[in-house]
């Protein structure tokens, strides 16, 4: 698949990730389109989270984690080659974790802390941005009268939307979701899913999910991860209809039809 240069948000060339001597991924080549939603699917332990973390260098925090090859992120160049500013990288590549993880402080402070770090110290301005982000995730009506209450007292779904809002408030270009719905009930899942779909066109989104139906519903493109023996790689990549209806590789067709994984 060839995409024009200016439409590529992330370009991976022969990327490998290992923890000490354990290899998690090898020879990964991938191009992620700007403004699209890309889903990462595949069995547990196939390196989806690892790859996600290499995109905002959260991998630096894992012990002995080494990322090799070229990880080219638009606006930053090759993360491995150049001395990049981690702080601004992480501001433009946001991440939402599997378990909702608001800081156990007030809702307002959850927004003020990262905003202050970005140099927005004015209270009014911060309030305005927080309100905008909360409205965007449909949480404003539910929480506008309890902004000073602890964020970790909200329901799971609300917490996860809060985390998305908190990431959005930094105005990132790319947003990474690591199984954002797996800790949520079906109702909350639907809401969060809808939210992610609405980001299409505006942000580049990558979402890791175990739920193939979900990938089908919201993603434009799908990457199928597979790890077995010496194969630790992406075995299939393409647009949703192509991957689901006519998978090229055996691994992918078996995984997608539920026979393996």
């Amino acid at each position: 698949m060839n995409i024009e240069e200016e439409n590529i948000a992330i370009h991976l060339k022969d990327v490998g990730i290992r923890y000490g001597t354990t290899v998690a991924l090898e020879h990964v080549n991938l191009q992620i389109r700007k403004g699209r939603i890309t889903a990462f699917v595949g069995p547990s332990g196939s390196g989806k989270t690892s790859l996600l973390k290499s995109l905002n260098r959260l991998s630096d925090l894992e012990k002995d984690c080494v990322v090799e090859g070229e990880v080219i992120v638009e606006g930053f160049g090759d993360l491995n080659a150049e001395k990049i500013d981690l702080v601004s990288l992480r501001r433009s590549v946001g991440m939402i974790f599997q378990k909702p993880n608001p800081f156990p402080i007030s809702i307002r402070k959850n927004f003020f802390l990262p905003l202050r770090e970005r140099g927005i110290k004015d209270k009014k301005e911060s309030d305005r941005r927080m309100e905008k982000a909360l409205k965007r995730v449909g949480l404003w009506d539910e929480v506008h009268d309890r902004l000073n209450e602890r964020a970790d007292r909200l329901s799971g779904g609300q917490q996860q939307r809060l985390c998305i809002a908190r990431a959005l408030v930094l105005e990132p270009d790319i947003l990474l979701f690591d199984e954002p719905c797996s800790a949520l009930d079906p109702m909350a899942t639907e809401v969060v899913e809808g939210l992610i779909s609405e980001l299409r066109g505006e942000l580049t989104v990558i979402i890791v999910t175990h739920n193939l139906a979900q990938a089908k519903r919201i993603a434009d493109e799908v990457a199928v991860f597979w790890c077995a023996g010496s194969c630790k790689n992406i075995v299939e990549f393409g647009c949703v209809s192509q991957v689901f209806d006519a998978p090229q590789s055996d691994f992918a067709s078996q995984y997608l039809s539920g026979q393996r994984g």
Partner: peptide, 15 residues
Amino acid sequence: VYRKTGYALGMRPLS
């Protein structure tokens, strides 16, 4: 996870 979240939100290590 709070440390990771902080970093993921682009906060400096000291903050």
